[in-house]
């Protein structure tokens, strides 16, 4: 007989509710059941109006970020077996406005990803290789940014970051990581452009290295490390700019 677990989900319907309210469900599960499968079975059999984002169910698309007992996680990679004997409390991803039930407004996060010029900007005076040629990039050069290119844009690090909670202007872990990913790509020449954002108070300098973003990141991208590396780069940039004449 499959075990049972009580799951309390925070609901919010903008037309009817002034503020969120809780609704509890009883769900059967086996060793393989993920929270996403549980939510889908609740939606199919108990509460069809429950809304949440999901798609790939293999922790690669980044749709199903939500708070599980206060910890930001991907629903598809959270297993009920790890909560046996406890209750599960599911809330929408922290630090984002709640649109409806477990769906949050990620537009601030997505806008920040777009603001940082996340594309290869060819180096000045160096033309891109021809149509049938690639940039030469050794595995060592690839390794410098590879880990930071694994970000699936799920927004969990923004939910984990107290600095983003306190100051929504903060560019945030994922955006700063993406900047570092492109700055360190041997093919890119846009570092000077992107450092303008990094050097601001709302850039790397809002980070007080709590480190919880790296703790919660479901793909082990370690954004906290990217930000510290960003601070080192920004500090170097600050020093260099001191000696450069103002007029330059």
């Amino acid at each position: 007989m499959a075990d049972k677990i009580k799951i309390t989900v925070q609901r919010y319907r903008p037309e009817q509710d002034r503020e969120p309210w809780d609704q509890s469900f009883e769900v059967e599960y086996t060793r393989e059941t993920s929270l996403l499968e549980a939510l889908n079975s609740i939606k199919d059999t108990q509460e069809p109006t429950l809304s949440f984002r999901w798609s790939c169910r293999m922790a690669i698309c980044g749709s199903c970020g939500m708070m599980v007992n206060g910890v930001p996680k991907l629903a598809c990679k959270t297993f009920l077996r790890d909560y046996a004997g406890q209750e599960m409390r599911i809330e929408p991803l922290a630090n984002f406005p709640v649109e409806r039930d477990l769906v949050v407004d990620l537009s601030d996060f997505i806008e920040k990803l777009e603001r940082i010029k996340p594309y290869i900007i060819p180096k000045k005076g160096e033309s891109q290789p021809g149509e049938q040629r690639e940039y030469i990039q050794t595995p060592a050069q690839l390794e410098k940014y590879r880990q930071f290119s694994m970000c699936i844009n799920c927004g969990i690090c923004y939910a984990a970051c107290p600095q983003y909670k306190l100051n929504k202007e903060f560019l945030g872990p994922a955006a700063l990581t993406l900047i570092y990913r492109y700055n360190e790509d041997s093919r890119d020449g846009g570092k000077e452009e992107r450092m303008k954002l990094v050097n601001q108070d709302t850039g790397v300098w809002s980070c007080s290295f709590v480190g919880y973003c790296s703790e919660c990141c479901p793909k082990g991208v370690d954004p906290a490390s990217a930000i510290q590396l960003g601070k080192v780069e920004s500090a170097k940039d600050y020093l260099i700019s001191m000696f450069k004449k103002k007029g330059e």
Binding site: Y12, P14, P20, V210, Y212
Partner: peptide, 22 residues
Amino acid sequence: RQPYVRPVDSTWWTKKGFYTAY
């Protein structure tokens, strides 16, 4: 559309061991 913005409490760091340690 009426996005609900959850309040920011200044005792956020008491709510999680990781934050308290920080």
